[in-house]
Structures are given as C-alpha cells and as structure tokens.
Design a protein around this nucleic acid. Structure first.
Lengths: 215, 215
DNA sequence: AAAAGTCTGTTGCAATTGCAACGAAATTAT
DNA sequence: ATAATTTCGTTGCAATTGCAACAGACTTTT
C-alpha cells in the first residue's frame, strides 16, 4: 500500500508543504541512517532503491529487505517512538521524501482532507504489516511440520472435501513453512497416506474430521 | 501502552463525545465478535477480561491471548481494513468501550489536543506490537539453536567480554527461543566448551570474534 | 540448619527434519 | 514431437532437537 494512496498529484504537492516534507538525494552506497539512530520521520522512496540491513553477532551485514519506489520505510520504529534497529543504505541514486511524524499527526489548521488520508494510509500500512507478521508468527508457533501444513492449508481451503489451490510452488511452500523442501514432500506423502488430505501440485483437498465441533 | 495515555479523566469524557464512543456490557461467556466479522471500531476494556481465540483445522478453539482492563484489542485488523480473524469472548462481566476508527481519524472541528493524543497513542500501540512481532520473527528466522541463542544474547550484550544479564530464567529463555529446555542447556554447554560464551544462571559473557569487522 | 521446593545441567534414546542425490513427471523451448 | 529445463517425490543417512528421568545447585521455608 502506498502512503499517498487516494491522494492526487496536485493534492500531494499541497500536502508536502502542509507536513513540511523534506526531500533528500542519496548517492549509490550512501548511508541514509544507521542502527541505533533516533529518527523522527517516515521515509518514502521517490526514486531509486534502498536496502535495510542489520549486523549479526559476528558483525556480518544481514540483508533484511529492499525498499523500492513508492514504498515507505522506517515507519515502524518512528511510530513506536523507538530507535532505529536497522541501517538504511541507498543502492542506487535515490530520492527520499521524509515526512515528520509530528507534522503528520498535527492536522493542519485548514483540516485538509488529504492530510487525513495520509494518516489513514500510514496507519493502514503499519496495521497490514502487523497482520502479515502475525500470520508468520502463528505459522512458526506450530512446532510440528504436520501442523504447519494444516495451518497453511486451512487458510486457503474453501469448503471441506472440495479442491482448492494455494499460490505457492512446492519450493515456495517449503520456504513459507520454514522447512526443507524434501522434508515437506515427505510429510505431504505421509499425510496423503493417512488420508488427511490429497493433493496434486498446488491443488489440495482436505479431509479433516470435525468431530470436536459436532458435539 | 494505554490508548488514553497522557489524557486526563476529564479530557477522556470530552473525548468520548467527540469520537462518539460506545459503551457495551457483556456477560461472562458472551461473544463480543466472531471470526470473519467486519468490525469498524477499536475495543478498549474498561472492566473485566476478554479472550481472543481462533479455531484450528480441527475446529478446536485455540486461545491466542487474554485482554484485560486498560488494554486495547481489535486494533490491528480494524486499522488494516481487514475482517476479524479471531473471536472475542468476555470471560467476566465486562465493559467495553468501542472507538470507531473513522471518528478517531476525523479530527473534530475543534481540533482538540486530546484527540490528537488518542491518534498518536493508537499508532504507537500498533507500531510497538509491530516491533515485538518483528523481533519474534527474526528470532524464528534463525533455524539453528546456536544462532537463536546468539541472536538473543546479542540483543542484551553491553560490551564484548563483559558480563550482562538477561531477564529470563532458563525455562523462559527456552520458551522465547521456541525450543526444549534441556536442548537449550545442552547447546549452552556446547557453546561454553567452544569458548564462544560463558554463563552462570542468567548472567552471560560473549566471546565473539569480530574479525569480519576488523578488515 | 534441615527440609522442601525450584531451577539447571546431563544423559541416553526417540522423533523430526536437513541434506544430497536421483529419477519421474510436468512444463517450456526448439 | 523431441529435447531441455524445471518441479516434485523418494530414499538413505546425518544432524538437530524433543523427551523423560535424574542429580546437583540454589532458594525459600520452617
């Protein structure tokens, strides 16, 4: 989701003034901010690309994610009132727009509608990331592969004993589940033998007994 | 964090009118909302307790979390514009205040300060939950116990080869790391033998070579 | 100080998953 | 249609972690 969703180009430019947005240019390789810095502004990539990295216990730089044009970054810790925990580095010649959180929150006296939209979008971005993280975490909270598989399939199943598809190849499915691909195939074959499910490629069918609900 | 943080009792009551807050009473056991419902209001527990549950693939009700007095719930999917994915049930006689998201976002014409504070607090709640989830997820992304341990310890270490404490007993540490306690003790003993770290109870000392940083 | 209770380390064995290699099936390119 | 490429299932073995049981260390209670 774009933080300027539903805001037209002309409104955008009014908004820039309204929230005193700051545009900065970075050379390829330039550090935008480091881990442990106090940041007060949400970043928005106008042009170029950014990498968010973190140092592990050995000092190795670990790539967390890439941010590209139209995406927002730094919003989590800025809005949480916390220090940065990641480093942001331009990996192209990059233009970043900084939106100061306080200015976003201080609805301007004019009470402009697009200002409200910006706020709404910002909240939505954070909340949606939250949903994404919650799903991943719930998946990981299942310790056994069988349960992880059923957790995933339950998300996509339409109605019992009818076929549905999942948007993953077997390799992607294994990655989502955080396990080895062949271990996944092995377990799927086992579950098929147990008649808990049937599948072919990315089409699945669940035969789950709902006895616990029938009483 | 309380969504009314920094808002006085008197301001609170003005705010209730301003955002048209709705107070509802629930009997012990009463369903507040079900999974798959469309909700437009953030919940705030004034009195009593709530359980958020989810049905697993077998239809078993799984307890996700308990919400008690002063806590906010439903904010994630309301702000994400998504359907509820959980069921909320009162487990006491419970008073819940519902704050409609649109009303929170529509800063009132009077432009009252506490309205802005409410918004700020809401964002902070979501963003902080985000940070929490990110940490858990990053931990789980390490597949090997050794890496999980070092991830945890790196978070708490002050300076190299100096002693620091972690706020967990061994049992809690194992739970945080998502592994069996005795497996954790085993691995800690191994890492101690490898001279990567030293420890006694919840006091630790890291001997991590930073060679990769020294070049 | 002794006793009871809790926390932690250790051990052996079981269960689960990772890994690598290969062949079959399915898809895409020629 | 054939060949090349990718995806998937299978297998055997290795590595990791779970589990249960017990003993020692540490804490709290009496």
């Amino acid at each position: 989701m774009n933080i300027f969703h539903n805001i037209s180009e002309s409104e955008k430019h009014l908004l820039y003034k309204c929230v005193k947005a700051v545009l900065k240019n970075y050379q390829n390789g330039e550090i935008i901010f480091s881990a442990d810095e106090n940041i007060d502004s949400v970043g928005y990539v106008i042009e170029g690309n950014i990498e968010l990295t973190k140092n592990d216990y050995n000092g190795n730089e670990i790539l967390l994610t890439r941010i590209s044009k139209g995406e927002t970054f730094a919003e989590t810790f800025v809005c949480a009132g916390a220090k940065s925990i990641v480093q942001a580095k331009a990996i192209d010649n990059t233009k970043v727009l900084f939106l100061n959180l306080n200015n976003i929150l201080n609805i301007c006296p004019q009470n402009c509608i697009f200002h409200k939209k910006l706020l709404e979008n910002l909240i939505k971005i954070i909340a949606q990331k939250n949903l994404f993280l919650q799903d991943r975490l719930e998946m990981f909270s299942h310790k056994i592969l069988k349960e992880r598989i059923l957790y995933l399939l339950t998300k996509y199943k339409s109605a019992d004993s009818s076929v549905f598809e999942i948007p993953y190849t077997r390799e992607q499915m294994a990655k989502y589940l955080g396990v080895n691909r062949s271990a996944l195939s092995k377990e799927l074959a086992k579950l098929k033998a147990e008649k808990l499910l049937d599948f072919h490629k990315n089409s699945f069918k669940l035969f789950v007994n709902k006895t616990s609900q029938e009483f």
